[in-house]
Amino acid sequence: MLGSWMSSFDKSIFDDFAPFEEEMDRMFDTLNRTTGIRAVRRGSFPQVNIGASPERVDVYLFGAGLDPKTVDISIEKSLLAVSGSREVPTREGGAYYRRERFGGDFRRVVSLPEDVDPEHADANYRDGVLHITVPRRESVRPRQIEVR
């Protein structure tokens, strides 16, 4: 029974991820929760991580195989939009068993804190990760007040 052996193999892989996915859905997504109007389905290409420190906001887009020249990054007010297209050329003269990798156009919009300074945003692309840094305005950073 090769078929059932194969499916149990696949299942064991996904089992390890299922609780994690469910946990994520419960925390962030569909179940009884209002989602952002521009939010995409969890796991959509490219996956995004966002971090914030008092000085700046760091946005990481996990987009392997992008041509950075074709990626459009714009910040309007506090909305960061990243759009582009990933080419996944189809190989000829054979057959695919799996096509899990995303190919085509994408657009992700991230809502940044109000106090960002888009004029001084910066972006670099390395090892398939697009890293965008947006500094925060001086005035709103927590200031150390010295007691005399």
């Binding site: 392997a64 190989r91 003269g93 695919y96 096509r99 899990e100 990798r101 398939g128």
Partner: peptide
């Protein structure tokens, strides 16, 4: 995530490993 392709020469696996 992977793409797996087979032709007469062999098998090609492409995997996204950003970062």
């Amino acid at each position: 995530l992977v793409d797996i392709f087979e032709d007469s020469e062999g098998i090609t696996v492409e995997a996204d490993l950003p970062g």
